[in-house]
Simulated scan of single mutants.
Amino acid sequence: MYILIGGAGMMGLDLARTLLHMGHTIAVIDTDPIACQYARQKIGVMAFEGSAVNTTVLLEAGIRKCNAFIAALREDALNLAIVTLSKHYGVPQIMVRMSDRDFEEPYQLAGATHIIGTLELAISRIVNAIEYPQVDAMMHFEQGQVEVVKLSIPQLCAIVGLTVAEIAQNPQFPTGTLIIGYQAHPHEDLIVPNGSTILEGGSTILVVTKPSLVRQMLDFMGLCA
């Protein structure tokens, strides 16, 4: 994919580096010549010096042919202008960094396909780390109605040696909770387990559940702090 990133700050450059390593073609747009030089020389992506809301710069950067545009500037008003212009030029995927939640509806009306509230995301990660220190990662879906939880299984965990089917059939396992991913060892691929998959100590699992059931699920597995 050809991806444009508006803004070569810390977030924009980290995105560029990550997406480049994933095999995408990346270009950043920024008014700072030093940031653009860093993007070219240190990261190895294209960089266009100028405003990401300047149509001349956008056309030079190839907005008409890009598959996705990421608006990663600090100012929501400028990001809103990027979203509007990207929609005008027919960009299929428009992702935006939102600092002020008051901009959520304007971003939706302007045509953003993905809105990432950076402040809310940071707060959520911190709260989860405090509330569930034994959880490696937690993602919210459908406005927080569903959680996907990543867990490392210790050698002495209560579920070690059990199959996914045995766990699911246990009456103490929260109803509606599903184990959807399994990685036996860090160097192995993540797989979608079936009922006969045996959970080993030192493995990693992905579990989908309701927010109200996370504590019960951790307690069942013997992972509660």
Rank of each mutant, 00 (worst) to 15 (best):
A39Q: 07
I123G: 03
L199N: 01
H24I: 10
E120H: 08
S152C: 06
Y38F: 15
L218E: 06
S196L: 08
T163D: 05
C157K: 04
R101I: 13
V148A: 11
G161P: 10
P171M: 09
G144A: 08
P33H: 10
A8S: 13
K210L: 15
V214W: 00
R40E: 14
A72K: 04
T209G: 05
V57Q: 07
L213S: 14
V96I: 01
M22W: 07
E188I: 00
N79Y: 04
M11H: 02
V28Y: 00
T175H: 11
T163L: 03
T197N: 10
I29Y: 04
I3S: 04
Y89S: 04
K42G: 00
F173L: 05
L20Q: 14
L58K: 09
E166R: 10
T84P: 02
T209K: 05
I205V: 15
A225E: 13
V146S: 03
T31E: 14
E200A: 13
A61C: 11
Q93W: 06
A184Q: 15
T209P: 05
T177Q: 07
L190P: 01
L218C: 08
I153Q: 09
Q143H: 13
L206H: 11
L58A: 12
A61K: 01
G90M: 11
M10H: 12
S99D: 00
R97V: 00
P92F: 04
Y2D: 07
H24T: 10
V148H: 02
A137C: 01
G195W: 06
L213N: 14
K65Q: 15
I34C: 00
L218P: 03
C66G: 03
I26R: 04
I180A: 01
A47T: 05
G195L: 03
E49A: 04
H24S: 12
L213D: 15
N128Q: 13
A184S: 14
